[in-house]
C-alpha cells in the first residue's frame, strides 16, 4: 500500500509517540496506581495518607461488605442488556431491511439522543414515571399497580433507565452487522425454509452474531458501572456498585476500599468478557 512512498523510517514512531505517551501516562500508570491503591493499608484515610502494605484482605473485605450491590449491578446490567437486545434488534432490523431511503435518517435519529445530556434525559424519565404522572395513574387505574404502587424508586425504573440510556450502543453494532448481510441470502432462506421465522433463526440471526456480541458488550460493561440511573430513578434499595465506589471516594474518603472495589468490578468484567467472547467464538470485535 504505502510501499511506493519512501518515508523516513521513524516517522511512524514520531506520529504515534504523543498518543502512546498520553495513554501510557494517563491510562496505564493510573491503572497501576489503582492496583496499588487497592492494596493500601485500610487504616489510613484520605486526610492522613495511606501506607502501601500489600493488604490483599481489602478485596475480601469489600466483597463481604458490598456483595449485594455488586451482584445487583450485574443483574441489572444483564436485564438492561437483554432489554436493549430485544428493542435494539427490532430497530436495527427495521433500519437495515425495511427503512429503504430513510435508512440514513433513522441512523441519525438513533444517535440523536446523545445530543442532549445523559443526566437531563434520565431526569426526564423521573418526570415520566413520577408518582402522580399519567403512566402511574393509568397503571393504577387498570390495577397493574396497587393504589399506592409506584414506578420510581423500583428496580423496574432503574433497569428501564439503563435500557433507555444504552440502547444506541446496541443498535449501532447490530445495524452494522445486519446491514452487511446479503439480501439474497435471506431470500434464499425464504425459499429453503417454509416459515420466515425459521429463516430468521437459521440465517439472519447467526449472521448477525458479531453485532449481537459487540452490542451486548458495549451495553453491559457501561451499564454495570453506571450509578446515574440508580441514583436518579432508584432508591437506596437499588444501589449499584458505581454508587458505592463513588460514595467511598468522595464522601467517605476510604480510598483503599474504593480502589479494591473498583478493581474487583474490573476483574469480574474482564473475566466475564473473556469467557463470553470465547463462548461466542468471535475474537474480532473491534
Amino acid at each position: 500500500m504505502a510501499r511506493t512512498r519512501r518515508r523516513a523510517r521513524f516517522t511512524g514512531y514520531w506520529l504515534m509517540l504523543p498518543s502512546a505517551l498520553w495513554l501510557a501516562l494517563f491510562f496505564l500508570v493510573p491503572f497501576y496506581s489503582l492496583i496499588a491503591m487497592s492494596l493500601y493499608d485500610p487504616e489510613g484515610s484520605s486526610l492522613t495518607g495511606y501506607d502501601m502494605t500489600w493488604h490483599f484482605a481489602n478485596y475480601v473485605d469489600v466483597v463481604q461488605a458490598y456483595w449485594r450491590p455488586l451482584l445487583r449491578s450485574f443483574w441489572y446490567a444483564a436485564l438492561a442488556t437483554l432489554g436493549c437486545l430485544l428493542l435494539g434488534y427490532v430497530l436495527a432490523y427495521a433500519i437495515a431491511f425495511k427503512a429503504g431511503r430513510w435508512k440514513n435518517l433513522m441512523l441519525v435519529l438513533v444517535i440523536a439522543p446523545f445530543f442532549t445530556s445523559f443526566l437531563i434525559r434520565t431526569l426526564s424519565w423521573k418526570l415520566i414515571l413520577a408518582d402522580d404522572g399519567w403512566i402511574v395513574n393509568t397503571l393504577q387505574a387498570v390495577g397493574i399497580l396497587g393504589p399506592d404502587g409506584r414506578l420510581l424508586a423500583t428496580s423496574f425504573a432503574v433497569v428501564m433507565g439503563l435500557t433507555y440510556n444504552f440502547l444506541p450502543f446496541m443498535v449501532l453494532p447490530l445495524f452494522a452487522s445486519l446491514d452487511k448481510i446479503d439480501h439474497r441470502l435471506i431470500e434464499a432462506a425464504g425459499d429453503l425454509y417454509a416459515s420466515p421465522a425459521r429463516g430468521f433463526f437459521k440465517v439472519t440471526l447467526p449472521l448477525s452474531m458479531p453485532g449481537v456480541v459487540a452490542g451486548t458488550l458495549l451495553t453491559f460493561i457501561p451499564a454495570a458501572g453506571d450509578y446515574i440511573n440508580s441514583e436518579l430513578l432508584g432508591s437506596p434499595n437499588q444501589r449499584m456498585i458505581g454508587n458505592v465506589i463513588q460514595n467511598l471516594f468522595t464522601n467517605q474518603g476510604d480510598y483503599a476500599a474504593a480502589g479494591a472495589l473498583s478493581m474487583t468490578l474490573m476483574i469480574i468484567i474482564t473475566i466475564g468478557v473473556v469467557l463470553y467472547i470465547r463462548r461466542a467464538g468471535t475474537e474480532d470485535l473491534v
Binding site: 491503591m37 458505581g242 465506589i245 471516594f249 480510598y255 478493581m263 468490578l265 474490573m266 468484567i269
Partner: peptide, 14 residues
C-alpha cells in the same frame, strides 16, 4: 472497554 467508574477511579488514584 473499561467502565467509566473504573477509568475515573484509576485517574483519581494517579
Amino acid at each position: 472497554a473499561a467502565p467509566e467508574i473504573v477509568l475515573g477511579s484509576s485517574m483519581l488514584a494517579l
